[in-house]
Design a protein around this nucleic acid. Structure first.
Lengths: 332, 332
DNA sequence: AAACATGATGGAATCGTTTCCATGAAGGTC
DNA sequence: GACCTTCATGGAAACGATTCCATCATGTTT
């Protein structure tokens, strides 16, 4: 038995210690067939030497890493934090390592990160995508199993997605605001919110409210951009009476901007925000929100991406819930 | 040239296409010496075939993965979210993939995740540790480069750490509260906050305030545990006049519990919270906080762990800042 | 012109595993 | 007892890169 120096214990050492061939050790350790007696000898030897199989060797041979790669726009946003937690908890129970990347909602960066993943021979990716459909073509052609979470690039219907029910969420919120008498309702959105915007338009149309294009603004992913958009909206159109914010960062910006301009909630302006976050209750007044099952989205996406059948699966749509708190009031 | 089926382009294909040996291709691609003419031929062939070297083969040969593993207690906590963002942004500029794991502040889970990393032959780890010093012995013996962030297990002084200046942060906050007249100041802490607690005790002692052990409570990492601790504290000791919360989750719990018990801020009770978060300004009154450079901690830790010299380096201590807002008032 | 230094080059070994295949022993059937 | 099936077993070939080393051509020195 070699003791000197830094010598990683390999399957060869175990084989030698147990007096068998490497093939047998491999078989025993990965649950193949072997006589009970041999199995015990191998197991004993492995335990005695404190043998840990190297993922490197295995991965090379099997030409896959078995891990999961996760791509989110911004890990600082608690929504994505919770989504990530969902992925991690599912991956953990399967013993799979998770690689993570933040795209900052930049398609170029996204493509680059996908490249890194390909290089690493990752074979499963969960992504909150920001690029267009073509961004994902190389990944798919390389045989990756991809699952989209939270949103999907328009036109990529060949990849399953786990989404929250944006359509119904928007409709419920807008109907709620309309029910309070609001007519000039603004939508403060972020990148990649096509479906929500469509739902916003459709709902207004169904309610017989004509859409005012100036009341639909869109910010980039960053906090300052969100604030600028919100502030601009309030200043440019002081006649609006309600805002639907398409995410917690945007909601935060809206509240901040309103406060800065001395608009009181809910007297001067009503706000509904997508995504329930802990501070929504701490805010004064507490914020009315559309809660999304962020963690569940992550968990299900992870489940899906680890199933063999991931390639051909229908989308999963999870329900949202309007939590009425104190940030909405009747039209002034 | 083989076209049929799913065939990963390997270095062999490039070598054949360029009419050179694999060794030459490898040399060219990793910046070794080669004649300009050959170099060009190889590069052209590689580009034409869209060749991407497999990290698997390289890693096995070099017996290291080159990635960074990151261990945080809870990715849902924005503090760790920002820390993670720091790590990611540094890793990205170096082109290194990042693996992430959430320990939930559970030493057992931590040990298990370290095991996973070892199996993957990760050779660099950044961790917000929760286990004791021994948890890290196997990792260090296996030759991993480890850097602690945010805190360190007591007694593991052979591993460099990137910390915020807890000692001064606590002192500044407590002195501020004492200056407002407070004497019965509570500390609401979480796991692994030994240094902060010591600083709390020391500062009180220096100020001539006798420490009341009942005013020091500690919660587990979860939100409900934090709330229970905060609520219990207020109910059990209605005579306290100020609370120092050791993290944003604990601060949130304190505000929530105070509100639930109809304690008004800052009239009935003053609160200072560790960690500045976006909602601290949205709270009413806005929260006075001790800001920590979470993102910078992550970035520096990543820088450190990628340097060769990481093993023998002094700790990095980053400054905190007391941001006085509206949650503290004179003793009632 | 012979000896030598230099530099480009390709073959082959290597990393640690899984897996294919050949071998041989044991047991069952006619 | 010959034959076939079943099963455990170990040697060796992958996987895709890096890197050692021998070879060979070229240019330099004496």
């Amino acid at each position: 038995m070699k003791v000197s120096g830094h010598h990683r214990i390999t399957i060869k050492d175990v084989a030698a210690a147990a007096g068998v061939g490497v093939a047998t050790v491999s078989r025993v350790l990965s649950g193949g067939s072997a006589s009970p007696e041999t199995r015990e000898r191998v197991l004993a030897a492995a335990a005695r030497l404190d043998y840990r199989p190297s993922a490197l060797g295995r991965n090379l041979r099997q030409r896959r890493t078995g891990g999961i790669a996760l791509l989110v726009p911004d890990i600082t946003d608690t929504f994505y934090g919770r989504l990530t937690e969902g992925v991690l908890s599912c991956a953990r129970s399967a013993g799979e390592p998770v690689m993570i990347g933040a795209t900052g909602d930049d398609p170029e960066l996204e493509a680059e990160l996908i490249g890194t993943f390909l290089e690493q021979s990752v074979d499963r990716v969960i992504a909150v995508p920001c690029g267009d459909a073509d961004t994902w073509t190389p990944a798919l052609r390389a045989g990756l199993t991809v699952v989209f979470a939270h949103r999907r690039p328009p036109g990529r219907d060949d990849v399953p997605a786990v989404l929250s029910d944006d359509r119904l969420g928007v409709r419920t919120a807008v109907e709620y605001l309309a029910g309070l008498g609001h007519r000039r309702i603004a939508y403060l959105g972020g990148p990649g919110q096509g479906p929500r915007l469509r739902a916003f338009r459709d709902t207004l149309a169904a309610l017989g409210i004509t859409l005012d294009d100036e009341l639909v603004v869109s910010a980039r992913a960053a906090r300052d951009s969100a604030y600028a958009a919100a502030s601009g909206l309030f200043q440019h159109r002081p006649d609006l009476t309600a805002v639907l914010a398409g995410g917690n960062v945007l909601g935060e910006a809206a509240v901040l901007a309103a406060r800065e301009l001395d608009l009181r909630l809910p007297r001067d302006v009503s706000i509904v925000m997508f995504d329930d976050v802990p501070w929504a209750e701490l805010c004064s007044p507490p914020l009315t929100v559309i809660a999304q099952p962020a963690q569940d989205i992550g968990y299900r996406a992870a489940e899906l991406v680890m199933r063999e059948s991931a390639r051909r699966t229908r989308d999963t749509v999870l329900p949202t819930e309007l939590l009425v708190r104190g940030s909405c009031g009747p039209r002034r």
